[in-house]
């Protein structure tokens, strides 16, 4: 297997800092998820808890998109064409949850 790399592709050595950053991101994601579990079992259900869940979810989404998908390294127009629609989408989620609550008032 010594001539595994005979196509002229040179293997670049590992950058430990980069690898460490990936594992740190993983740790952050897992810690946030664990924290969500703690909240789920200790806090009373209500708007405050739901708001916390949604904020923590957006924090996780931020780490996945920036660190794992490297969206931050893309050209700015591409970056904003992905991010801006998502921000409006979050608005729509919240707006229609409110609307659902209004339907509840009418129906029951």
């Amino acid at each position: 297997m010594a001539h595994d790399h005979n196509n002229g592709l040179e293997v670049i050595p590992k950058d430990p800092a980069k690898i460490k950053k990936i594992w740190m991101t993983a740790l952050i994601l897992l810690l946030i998820t664990a924290f969500e579990f703690v909240l789920a079992f200790t806090m009373d259900r209500g708007v405050l808890l739901y708001a916390l869940f949604i904020i923590l979810t957006i924090v996780k989404a931020y780490y996945i998109m920036m660190e794992f998908m490297h969206l931050g390294e893309e050209a700015k127009p591409l970056f904003y064409s992905i991010i801006v629609p998502i921000i409006f989408l979050i608005w729509l989620v919240i707006a229609l949850m409110k609307e659902g609550a209004e339907i509840f008032q009418m129906r029951w």
Partner: peptide
């Protein structure tokens, strides 16, 4: 993202109603 966004919006709206 829009497809799954639509699902989550549906879920949120029905859940709250």
């Amino acid at each position: 993202i829009f497809t799954f966004g639509a699902f989550l919006i549906t879920y949120g709206a029905i859940r709250m109603s």
